[in-house]
């Protein structure tokens, strides 16, 4: 998952970037509105965290511009002004949720996870598809009743695929979203990881959770279990 953090306060931004990086996200950052707008428009982003009180271009303007361009990724706003006027303005402009400063990091990461899950069409942080279940808050994958041990990168891939269950995800998208920018981009690495995931989740090749579409990418193939 690639996140974008636009926040002008350096301490806060760095701490967010560090925390989110630790939580397994690839994080882009921008220190002012102009740079932030550029990143929000040009980078492949799964979710943006935008401070409303930015220098140069305001957070609201970034959100409006990005939404007007048809980008649909979730946006979480950070606001120091917790009058409803500001929150409603942000939400009406196209943001999906807000966190009021000063926040606990856990609050932000919980909202980020919820927004990512929702944007994939999942209602809870428990993603169930056939015998496979992924618990996002515990970062736990189970097939049937067996917990599967995963490396952090394997987890990132299966989480990404499951969040977008049914969609075709190209290799380059996976590399874009999962690697930090300075990582070496080698699509063969993805193939290797997918292979390992298949072996771990489906050793006897019976449920076939990940489909390969030649020349197009991968798809998490199991039907979502209807919840609620």
């Amino acid at each position: 998952m690639r996140l974008l953090v636009i926040e002008d306060d350096a301490t806060l931004r760095e701490s967010l970037v560090k925390g989110l990086g630790k939580a397994g996200f690839a994080v882009e950052q921008a220190a002012d509105g102009r740079e932030g707008l550029y990143c929000a428009q040009e980078y492949p982003v799964d979710l943006a965290i935008i401070d409303l009180g930015l220098p140069e271009v305001s957070g609201l303007d970034i959100i409006r511009t990005v939404r007007a361009e048809g980008k649909t990724y979730p946006i979480l706003i950070l606001t120091a002004r917790d009058r409803w006027e500001d929150k409603v303005d942000g939400l009406s402009a196209g943001a999906d949720d807000y966190v009021v400063k000063p926040f606990h990091f856990e609050e932000v990461s919980a909202r980020v996870n919820a927004l990512l899950r929702r944007s994939g069409g999942w209602a809870t942080s428990q993603l169930d598809a056939g015998p496979v279940s992924l618990n996002m808050s515990r970062q736990e994958l189970k097939v049937g009743d067996d917990a599967i041990e995963l490396t952090s990168f394997e987890y990132k891939i299966i989480e990404y695929l499951m969040l977008r269950a049914g969609q075709v995800i190209s290799k380059s998208e996976l590399t874009d979203r999962l690697y930090d920018q300075d990582f070496e981009r080698d699509s063969n690495v993805i193939e290797v990881f997918i292979g390992r995931l298949r072996k771990k989740m489906d050793p006897d090749n019976s449920i076939k959770p990940i489909e390969t579409l030649r020349g197009r990418g991968y798809r998490f193939a199991l039907e979502r279990n209807q919840s609620d």
């Binding site: 301490t11 806060l12 967010l16 950070l78 009021v100 000063p102 606990h104 990091f105």
Partner: peptide, 12 residues
């Protein structure tokens, strides 16, 4: 509030 948030982040 931004400094408050920064303080909290530093604490975190």
């Amino acid at each position: 509030k931004t400094p408050l948030a920064a303080m909290r982040a530093l604490l975190g």
